[in-house]
């Protein structure tokens, strides 16, 4: 006797009461692709998640609905997850000293005090505007 359900869709599936259980094979849900979403023209693409798909085209079709069904969208990029290069967290210290390099920053150059001292010592030669 197939399952009779409160859900008429389920009843129509005619599910036998005793079903075999065939395991899902490794990789049966395909590869993963990363999804980058651009909300409107002029915006950056932002990583929003990933999809399982058998090909990049399919990944696009899936991503369009999983990541673009609610908000505004202008474009979506799809990249195979395994094509993305990144580092292990233990190597994140390669970035550690970057914020200290103040010679790269506008804020690292402060000459106002020097100018003021100079003007105090020599007097201004020009009318300040």
């Amino acid at each position: 006797m197939p399952i009779i359900s409160l859900d008429p869709r389920v009843t129509r599936l005619e599910i036998p009461e005793e079903q075999g259980l065939e395991p899902i094979q490794p990789n049966e849900y395909f590869e993963t692709y990363e999804v980058f979403h651009q909300a409107k023209s002029g915006d950056k693409h932002i990583h929003v998640g990933s999809v399982h798909a058998p090909s990049a085209e399919m990944a696009f079709l899936f991503a369009k609905e999983q990541y673009g069904r609610r908000s505004k969208s202008y474009n979506i990029w799809i990249v195979r997850s395994s094509d993305i290069t990144s580092i292990m967290s233990e190597d994140a210290d390669i970035f550690a000293t970057a914020p200290e390099k103040t010679y790269r920053e506008a804020g690292g150059y402060k000459v106002r005090e020097k100018i003021n001292a100079f003007r105090k010592q020599h007097g201004s030669t020009q009318q300040s505007s």
Binding site: R9, Y29, H52, A53, L61, F62, K64, E65, Q66
Partner: peptide, 18 residues
Amino acid sequence: SEWTGLGPLLEEDIAFSS
């Protein structure tokens, strides 16, 4: 709409429902 929640892959389930 009968496929919603019963599709062959979660991602496709979502697309087909839309």
